[in-house]
């Protein structure tokens, strides 16, 4: 149920002094030629840090040659941007008209009461930020609440406490033993059609999928959870975050070609046949969770 969105994804919280100007420069580089320039740059910085740190804005000003006043003005104009750090979890209540006539205001009030803050603020323990949004476009199901990218429909006042508890526990965590939406897939090599299944190495209670990976002139094994929906892996060498690796079949030693590119991060996606029909595409970038199980 995880909505794939860079917007609400804030696994890490950064303080002002942790901002690496190299990261900012990388973002500036990326958007040097694209449309929407400044807004896009700020969007990316906001997604990365959860807010727009002062040092980041100063770097953007120095590098783009636009005055700090302009940049600050744009940052302060748009609702999406925040100049203050946000909490670990983000609860967002839709206040669109359809939600309003179905009592969204009461839902906001309940959130405010439960958290002891008003909309737009962050709790003192930096656990929750409460926000309202004008319309999320899920009007038929109002009132709608989004917590850390997970949508909840027809929310009533009485449900709020439970939602907060769920949010605190972490909505992205799947209960691998109990959740019936998780199931194992047996993946094969597109060249030799032999299974990657490795009965000797168990991850998540199921035989893992074994392949070799190559990066930086190094090769080593990787064992991935065979559960569709679990991202647990074990690797021989540590693969740095964001690194793109190539996968090699442990049976026929041929490299598995990346054909299409990932819609999230532009890295190659690797298609492999799945036992039972169809194929699965996995993004080859470490840390990207893009997977597609295609049955067509």
């Amino acid at each position: 149920m995880k909505q794939d969105t860079a917007i609400l994804n804030r696994d890490n919280l950064y303080a002002e002094e942790e901002i690496d100007s190299k990261d900012i420069l990388r973002i500036l580089e990326k958007y040097a030629r694209s449309r929407g320039g400044l807004v896009a740059i700020l969007e990316e910085i906001q997604s990365k840090y959860g807010y727009l740190p002062e040092t980041a804005l100063r770097t953007v000003s120095e590098r783009t040659g636009r005055s700090l006043v302009d940049i600050y003005g744009v940052a302060a104009f748009y609702r999406f941007f925040s100049l203050k750090p946000k909490g670990k979890h983000l609860a967002c209540v839709c206040l669109g008209t359809a939600c309003h006539v179905r009592g969204a205001q009461e839902v906001v009030e309940e959130f405010e009461q439960q958290l002891g803050i008003t909309a737009g603020q962050t709790t003192e323990d930096r656990e929750f930020t409460l926000e309202t949004v004008n319309c999320l476009g899920a009007c038929a199901l109002g009132p709608v609440v989004v917590i850390d990218g997970h949508y909840f429909s027809k929310v009533e006042r009485s449900k709020v406490k439970q939602l907060l508890d769920q949010g605190r526990k972490g909505l992205d965590k799947l209960d691998i033993e109990k959740d019936e939406r998780i199931f194992p897939v047996d993946v094969r090599c597109p060249h030799c059609n032999q299974s990657f299944k490795d009965e000797t190495f168990i991850i998540d209670g199921y035989p893992s999928l074994k392949a070799n990976v190559a990066m930086d002139h190094k090769q080593g094994w990787i064992r991935m959870s065979s559960l569709y929906g679990s991202y647990n892996v074990c690797t021989e060498h540590e693969i740095p975050e964001d690194m793109i690796v190539s996968f090699i079949c442990p049976h026929c030693d041929s490299e598995i070609p990346g054909t299409s590119t990932c819609s999230e991060c532009e890295a190659p996606m690797m298609p492999m046949p799945v036992d039972g029909g169809g194929r699965i595409k996995i993004c080859t970038r470490r840390g990207c969770k893009n997977r597609m199980l295609d049955l067509v």
Binding site: E180, R181, I182, F183, V185, Y228, G229, V274, D275, G276, G277, G278, L293, L295
Partner: peptide
């Protein structure tokens, strides 16, 4: 997800 699971399990592709 459940549909995919069922189709794969029962080999109905």
């Amino acid at each position: 997800r459940i549909v995919k699971k069922y189709i794969l399990e029962k080999r109905l592709a």
